[in-house]
Design a binder for these strands. Structure first.
Lengths: 145, 145
DNA sequence: GCTTGCCTTGAAGTCCACATGAAGGTTTAA
DNA sequence: TTAAACCTTCATGTGGACTTCAAGGCAAGC
């Protein structure tokens, strides 16, 4: 398949695919007689892998280092493991930050008093909130006030 | 407290704090007679809030839009809610992407055979993996091969 | 034979989120 | 009084991850 089809299949732009190849995030792609890229499913899978790791916040540089190690012939599983574990730790921290932010926004959302469509549940929350305010040393949602 | 102390307290550079103020991610900061920023705990909390949201991948632009709505006097809770919910959806998707990538890397890590320090557990996994290979149509870890 | 639509490479441009530098002001300590 | 150590604003620079542009090649259809 040509690069445009690959782009449509993966959702990654043609330019980005070329960029990934140049940066060795994906293997060197086979060419047709005239020099056009001929992309197979192995490449598609590797593009998807890159996409997933990129979406998770892995940098091009880290990704390249990792893939380099992975593709190397020598017995470097120890370094691979270390790199993986390092990356894993970064990603887990990021996930936890994200979860904290999500919890935060959810808290805000649940303590909202929407004047236009007040439900009983919201009114009850409002009362509860009001009660809490009196005994307040609550910090959780205080940045924005 | 001056900007340097605030920077040390929050781990955010002085330049970044000035930038956040300019971009209205934090409120306008009070000044001393000579024009220096005098930062109080309210600002510190808002810097931390920005840091948290940034760490979770919220863009400056989205953050600004959100805070703008939040700080506004008018009754715009409906829009606030919509924006919050929108942002929440983005963040949840991001968290799930992240979790998928973490699972992926964990899978890899658990299927590693480290020649240098082979534990019994790893050997058992190796056997299990070998057995799986025979009945294989397993795709999960196939990108890099 | 010319247009359309794909492709190629290489260089240059863009966007974000700051970082850094220049030019200058104030307070503190020697 | 002079240097150090803060601070200010405004302008420009930087790094990462692409995107866009320029200049040209190949194949199909009219």
């Amino acid at each position: 398949m040509n690069i445009k089809e690959a782009s449509e299949k993966t959702g990654v732009s043609s330019a980005a695919i070329r960029y990934y190849e140049k940066e060795s995030l994906i293997p060197a792609i086979d060419r047709t007689e005239v020099g056009n890229r001929d992309i197979d499913d192995r490449i598609i899978r590797r593009i998807r892998f890159v996409t997933q790791m990129r979406a998770a916040g892995m940098s091009i540089e880290n990704l390249r280092r990792y893939i380099e190690l992975f593709d190397a012939q020598e017995d470097n599983t120890k370094e691979q493991k270390a790199l993986l574990q390092e990356q894993l730790a970064v990603m887990e921290e990021k996930r936890d930050d994200l979860q904290a932010a999500i919890d935060h926004l959810n808290y805000k959302l649940n303590h909202f008093y929407d004047h236009m469509e007040t439900t009983e549940a919201e009114l009850r929350q409002l009362e509860k909130q009001h009660a809490e305010k009196l005994e307040s040393t609550e910090q959780a949602d205080d940045e924005l006030k």
